[in-house]
Design a protein around this nucleic acid. Structure first.
Lengths: 247, 247
DNA sequence: TAAGTGATATATGTATACAATTTAGAATGA
DNA sequence: TCATTCTAAATTGTATACATATATCACTTA
C-alpha cells in the first residue's frame, strides 16, 4: 500500500506548513482573494520562506490558491464550484468502479472491501456513527485500488482533495438529524450495490452507481448551504464559498 | 482567457527548469526508477537547487516523478498506464462536454469553437497537416472552456498533462501514412459531432463522443507501440514505457 | 491640477551556507 | 561468512543573504 501519497504525520517543516496552511484556508481564515505575502505568512507560521514556498506551490496545484502575477492569492469558490468538484469526483470514481467491474479477478480480492461494508452496516445498526467518516473514506480508497491501476488510484485521491470533494466532507459526526441518518442508510445501500456490480462485472452499473453516490454528497452540501443561509449551523468548509464568481 | 495556467515562456529559472526537465524525462533521457539527486541535476541544468526543487515538486504532482524515501525517482510507466491516462482524459473531457451541452447559452458562444473546426477542415482539405496539432489542442481547450466551470477547465488541462494523455501526443506531423490521415478525418468528424451535440443540448451524446474521441488516441498509441516493437519508428514519448510494472 | 518620472521600499526569485538526516562502507565480533 | 554497529560521506531540509522585479509615493513640470 502506498503510504507516501497519504500525508504522513511527517516531522518536516514543509509538510507541517502545508497541513497547517491548508486547514487555515479551508477554515476560512483568509477571505477570498487575500494576497498571501511570503514574508508575513512565514513569520506568522514560524517557519522560513523555503518550506512555506513549497507549501504554497502544492496548495496552488491542489487548487486552493491561485497565482496572480508573482504571488499567491486565496481562490474564491462559488457554490457552483463546490457542486462541480463533487460531481467530478463522482465521475472519476465511476471510472475506477467501471474498471474494477470490467476486470477478471480473483474473487478473494473483494473480501477487504466487503469487510468494510459489513463494518459500516454494524455502525448504522448500533447507531454509533462516530467512526463513519473514517470507514467511508476507507471504502472509497479500497474502491479506487480495485481499479487495478495505480494511476487511477492516485487520480481518485487527488480529485478527493479538491475543495469540498472529499467523500466525508459534509458528514459531520455531530449532525444528529434524521435526514443525516437517512442519507447514511442510502449511501450504504450504494456501497452494497457497488460491490455487487463489481462482483458481477457490470461496468456501466458500477460507474453510474458511483456517480449517483456522489449526488448524495451534492444533496448534503445543498442542505448545509441552505442551513448556513439561515445561520443555523455552519460546516467550516462552507466559509470558503463566496457569492458568485463563476458566471 | 487564463494565460497563467498554460505555461508562459517565462524567463524565470524555475519555469525553464521545469520545462527542460520535463522534456528530458519524457524523451526518456533517464531510465525508469533513476534516482534524481538534486546536486548533480542542478549542476547538469546549470541552476541552483532552489528552482530545481520547485520543478521536482511540480513534476511529482504531475505524476512524472515519485517520492522514494527522501528523494525523487523517475516513475516507471507500463503500456497499461498510458491507456488508462488517455481514457481518463476522455472521461474528464466527456464531463466537460456534457456540462457544455446541458447549459442554456448564448448561441454566439459556440462561434469560436466552430471557427476552429472550420480551420481544421481546411487543413485536412489542403493536406497541410503541419499545424494540426496546435489547432487540435485549441479545440480541446475551447471545449473545456465551454463547460462553464473554471474548475473543470483546469482539471481537463491537468488530465491532458498526464504522461501520454495530451490530445495530440501521438499525432506527429511527420507521420505520413494513410492510416494517420484516416484517423485525422475520423477525429474531425468527432469534432463536428461534438459541437452539434452541444448545440442541441444532447449531454449524454456529447459525453460519449468525447470518450470515443479519446479511444482514437488509444488506437494511435497502440499502433505506435507495435511499430516500436518492430523497431520501425519511435515516438519520443514511448521511451518512457517499460515492461509491466502494473500487474 | 494632472501626468509623468524617478527614487525608495517591498515583494518575489535565486544562490548558498549550514543543519539534520539518511545511506553506504568498513571494521569488528560471533 | 554473515551480521551488527559505528563512522564518515553524501543527500536532503532549512534558513538566510543577496539579486531582481514591481509597486508606491513624492516631486517635478507642463
Amino acid at each position: 500500500m502506498n503510504t507516501t501519497t497519504a500525508e504522513p504525520n511527517s516531522s518536516s517543516q514543509a509538510d507541517r506548513t502545508l497541513r497547517t496552511l491548508r486547514s487555515r484556508i479551508v477554515a476560512g481564515q483568509f477571505p477570498a482573494a487575500t494576497r498571501l505575502g511570503e514574508v508575513a505568512l512565514a513569520r506568522s507560521l514560524g517557519v522560513s520562506r523555503t518550506p512555506l514556498r513549497s507549501a504554497l506551490l502544492q496548495l496552488a496545484q491542489e487548487g486552493l490558491l491561485e497565482r496572480t502575477g508573482s504571488s499567491y492569492t486565496v481562490r474564491a469558490f462559488s457554490f457552483h464550484d463546490a457542486l462541480v468538484a463533487i460531481e467530478l469526483r463522482g465521475v472519476i470514481e465511476g471510472t475506477a468502479a467501471r474498471m474494477a467491474a470490467e476486470q477478471q479477478r480473483n474473487p478473494d480480492s473483494l473480501i477487504p472491501i466487503k469487510n468494510t461494508v459489513t463494518k459500516i452496516d454494524h455502525i448504522i445498526a448500533t447507531d454509533t456513527i462516530n467512526h463513519y467518516g473514517a470507514l467511508n473514506d476507507q471504502f472509497h480508497q479500497q474502491l479506487a485500488a480495485l481499479s487495478g491501476s495505480s494511476l487511477i488510484e492516485s487520480e481518485v485521491m487527488r480529485a478527493s482533495r479538491l475543495p469540498f470533494a472529499a467523500p466525508s466532507a459534509f458528514s459531520s459526526s455531530d449532525d444528529d438529524t434524521q435526514r443525516f441518518k437517512t442519507s447514511l442508510i442510502i449511501g450504504q445501500q450504494h456501497h452494497h450495490a457497488l460491490v455487487d456490480a463489481i462482483e458481477k462485472h457490470c461496468g456501466s452499473r458500477a460507474e453510474h452507481l458511483a456517480r449517483e453516490h456522489a449526488c448524495l454528497a451534492i444533496t448534503n452540501i445543498e442542505v448545509a448551504f441552505r442551513e448556513r443561509e439561515q445561520q443555523q449551523y455552519s460546516t467550516p468548509l462552507l466559509a470558503l464559498i463566496t457569492e458568485q464568481n463563476t458566471p
